[in-house]
Structures are given as structure tokens and as C-alpha cells.
Design a protein around this nucleic acid. Structure first.
Lengths: 230, 230
DNA sequence: GACAATTGTAACTTTGCTGTAACATCGATT
DNA sequence: AATCGATGTTACAGCAAAGTTACAATTGTC
């Protein structure tokens, strides 16, 4: 996850523009939607890391959208910041109940907005703060996004990194190509299952130093496994 | 469930043909219906694992069919992918609300279609994590797909693994070759019964360490049995 | 905008599993 | 012990799964 994608759901074009300007400047990628329907569309088509949601929307309200996202696995973990037009206690309470993680009242400064977003992303992205995983002299550190063998850096592509991370944190269990696609590539990718093989090959090449590729094991007819044994 | 059955509800013959071609090639079994009425007929007559539903149908719309399936227990769990002719916001939202799990807009590539189907089938059939089985020092763990005797790894082919798993979870009962073919090979396999003998032999060889092959017992005239006794 | 890195796919190669037939052995029945 | 059906064993051809390579397309970087 290089750049966080932030979806802004807001009917007023002026506010959308202002928000986008602020987010672009802060280095985020901005997605936009004017209403709930468009928002669902965006959720379907791309990964969203954080949702900026206006509470007062034409048609289906932001509240309903939030509740809906709570119901589905794929969207449940996405942090939500709600935008409220004024300090209305009732809205806030409802919003927090519906799964909003934070709120900000208009008018707000771009600086405050960005600060809240960063804070929330930091908190809700355990991956970034996750602890390093080590197996013998093979070490993977999610924080610095580095892999090393005997303190000697090992290079690999992003996909291989995610694959290794998943496997190291789920040792001794066999995962089918399909499961790995779900876990490592994400839920809606149209990728051939055999593609997994190629990335396993690349990962093995990267780990071949000191024979650490032996831990990436093939289980014929079942999938792949990370294990120290055998 | 060896081969997934997919029902295609689509009025245009050209698209039906294209879809069937793609599904056949991907190894799925295809059922077809031109309208809602025929579709209900198919649901009545056979098991359906996934529904590909055109949204624009003559007569009763796909939307109504989806809602109807939601109402009945037997069909509620069937995942639905809807086919929409064009990007029509309203349709998509209505569809997702009516219980569609995914949608795909025409024109679509066979590859994308198959990929989405596979992903959906994978997700909607979460394999229950099976627990390890142990008999004395013989241990079989479905999760890691491993067999060991006295903590020492034992290797065998996929079929022997499935056979041993079945036998260990159904001890002290005799199974005929025919029954074993059904249980271990799958319900519609055209395999000689004597093939079972060969795999039993291979399994026995694999278990011969410490004499664990003695648990795979022949019951003359009846079949095979896994038992600790005798 | 040129260059490098990464990704996904297809094609080809290699590996080893699977199913079958043929032959050997065993056990029961006469 | 002779016979016959059932089971054990072996060998092998075909095939499916996994490994590998090359490449085109995309993406990121300077």
C-alpha cells in the first residue's frame, strides 16, 4: 500500500474541490462521489483506504451508507471520518454508532483534516505498525518494508514481499492458489491462479541465499506452505 | 462437490453461447435459461451453485428473480453475479441491494467472467478448518497437509492422503471398493474398482514405518477397514 | 518522456501421480 | 492338492500439476 486512497462522498462541489486540493497536497490519492450510489460504485471498482463521508446527502443518507459498509467483510475495516455541517450532538452519536471513527465539523481547516486522516490511517493500519517476523536468520520487517538474511538485505518485488509476509505469519498451513489470491492479491482481482506459481518462483529465487527457499514448500494438489520442517 | 454448476439466465442466445463456451473451457457445468420462468424450473430440478443473471430480461426482470431467491431458504445462499448491459448506476445499486454479490458489465471478457466466478465460489464456500486426526503415534493434519509417525514426516501422494484421511475419520468400519471410490475419488469418477487396491498398497508402503500398515486391513469379500485392533 | 521495475500470461519443460493391465499370491472350497 | 475367485504386486504409458522462461503491458521513477 504505497499511497492511501481516500474516498470523498460529498454533494457540494465546492467542498469536494477544497478537500481534494488538501489531500493532493498531502500526497493522498483522492476518489470522489456525489452520493451513496456513486460511492458504492467506487467501493466495487477499487480499493479504498479511508472514507470521508458527508452526513447530509441527497437521497440515501451517509448514515445508511456507513451501516451498509459495516455489514460487509470487505469494507468493514475501512475507517470513516464523517463531515457534519454543524455541531449537532445527535448526528455525532448516530454516526459513531454506525461505525464512524472520527468526525470533523464544517467549516474545517485543510490542516486539521489532513492531521485527522493521518492519525486515523496510522491507527487503523496495523500492517504498518506490525511487528517484524523472524524465522531463524530470515527476517521480515513490515515497518521498514525490508527482508534480510543474516542481516544482509534481500530484494524482492512488492507482491513477493506481501506473499512472504502472509506465509511467514501463517506458517505450517497449506494455502491453495485461490486462497493466496484472496489473501495476498485482494478479493477482487481477475488473476490466473497459475500466476501464483510465478511469484512463488520469484520469491524462492529471492530467498535462495543460504537455502531459505526450502521453507517455501509445494504441496502437490493442495497449494503452498511455509514451514521450517522438512 | 466436484464440479460447480452454474446457471446462466440470459435471453440473447449469442451471449449465452459465449458464456457457455467460456464456462465449459474453465471446467464448470453450465445450465441455461432464457427467462425467469425457465430459471425457476431449473432451480426446482437441480442443484445450482452460482447464478449468472442478466438484468434486462423480457417479462419478469432479473431483479425480481433475485429478490425471490432471497426469500427462500434453499436458494438464499446461492451467490449471484449480475450481467448489466451498460453502466447504469441505478441498476447496480438495486442489484447489490437485491442480493447480487457481484456484477459485470457487458461487454466482458471470458477471462474476467471466469475469474469473478472462481473468486465468488471460493469466498462463498469457506472450508471449515479441519482438525488433525491422531491414532497412537500416527498423525494426520489436514491444515498443514502432513502425515507423521513419531513426529517423523511420512510422504505420500494426494490420493493416498485423502484415502488415509477418510479411513482415519471412519475407523472400525468396512468400506467396499465402490464406497471408497465415492468417498475418496468423488461421486462421478469412472475408475476401475481394482485401482483402489493399488492405492491401498501405496498407502501401506507409506505407513510401513513402525508397522503402521497393519491398521489398513483387508476384509476379504467386503473391502478395507482402518482399525487399531487385531 | 525515457528508463527501470514490476506484473500477469502464455508457452514450454519437467516432475511425479494416476489408472490400468498383467502377473503373482493367497484363501477357501471341493 | 486342485481349482477358482479375490487380493497383492509390479511395470508402464498417459496425463495433470508444478517449474521455468520469455515477453508484452503496465506502472513507477528520475
Amino acid at each position: 500500500m504505497s499511497v492511501a486512497k481516500i474516498l470523498v462522498v460529498e454533494d457540494e462541489a465546492a467542498i469536494r474541490d477544497m478537500v481534494r486540493l488538501a489531500l493532493d497536497k498531502a500526497g493522498f490519492e483522492t476518489l470522489e462521489a456525489e452520493d451513496t450510489h456513486q460511492a458504492l460504485q467506487v467501493f466495487h471498482d477499487s480499493r479504498v483506504d479511508l472514507l470521508l463521508l458527508d452526513w447530509m446527502l441527497p437521497g440515501q443518507s451517509g448514515l445508511e451508507l456507513a451501516r451498509r459498509l459495516q455489514r460487509e467483510d470487505r469494507t468493514r475495516e475501512i475507517p470513516i471520518i464523517m463531515l457534519t455541517a454543524r455541531v449537532e450532538e445527535n448526528d455525532k452519536v448516530l454516526g459513531l454508532e454506525a461505525g464512524a471513527d472520527d468526525y470533523i465539523t464544517k467549516p474545517f481547516s485543510p490542516r486539521e483534516l489532513v492531521a485527522r486522516i493521518k492519525a486515523l490511517l496510522r491507527r487503523s493500519r496495523p500492517q504498518a505498525a506490525e511487528s517484524p517476523v523472524q524465522v531463524e536468520n530470515l527476517m521480515l520487517d513490515p515497518g521498514s518494508h525490508r527482508v534480510s538474511i543474516n542481516d544482509h538485505a534481500v530484494t524482492m518485488g512488492p507482491t513477493e514481499f506481501r506473499l512472504l509476509h502472509f506465509l511467514m505469519t501463517h506458517q505450517n498451513r497449506v494455502y491453495s492458489r485461490g486462497q493466496l489470491l484472496d489473501q495476498v492479491w485482494g478479493h477482487n482481482s481477475f488473476v490466473e491462479e497459475r500466476t501464483v506459481d510465478v511469484h512463488v518462483l520469484r520469491l524462492r529465487k529471492a530467498l535462495s541465499k543460504d537455502g531459505y527457499d526450502r521453507y517455501i514448500q509445494t504441496v502437490r494438489g493442495a497449494g503452498y506452505r511455509f514451514s521450517v520442517q522438512e
